[in-house]
């Protein structure tokens, strides 16, 4: 290499951390959704929801690291963090929706179509 070119460049030893962290983003994301789901469904007590929030925090941190390691623009990193804040509310909105729709469509016990 004759001259040094300054530009965003992923060095070979950074690939493994990057792939690992992006997998962790989704794994923690699922763990968060799963914990909240199972707690809301009553498979285990509401106390476990705190574990879910811990997963959310880990996910947020992983995404932050990912954005730093792939050398995103500072603006992009900020957008990602705002997105993660939104993700904190999604399961709650989701279950609100499930409960409301259950109450609306499944309460009357009407066996309208049970044809098989």
């Amino acid at each position: 290499m004759n001259e040094l070119i300054v530009r965003p460049e992923i060095t070979p030893d950074m690939f493994l951390p990057i792939f690992t962290i992006s997998t962790l983003v989704l794994v923690f994301g699922v763990a968060y959704a799963a914990t909240i789901t199972l707690a809301k469904m009553g498979y285990f007590s509401k106390k476990w929801m705190n574990l879910g929030y811990l997963f959310w925090a880990l996910q947020t941190y992983s995404l932050y690291l990912l954005s730093v390691w792939i050398q995103s623009e500072p603006f992009t990193s900020k957008v990602l963090m705002v997105t993660m804040l939104a993700y904190l509310f999604i399961p709650h909105l989701y279950f609100r929706l499930i409960e409301d729709s259950d109450r609306r469509y499944d309460s009357g016990n009407n066996i309208a179509e049970q044809k098989n």
Binding site: P8, I10, F19, S22, T23, L26, I70, Q71, S72
Partner: peptide
Amino acid sequence: AGIWGFFHTLPQV
């Protein structure tokens, strides 16, 4: 589709 898609979808990677 989700995990294996996501970890190579960003242009930097």
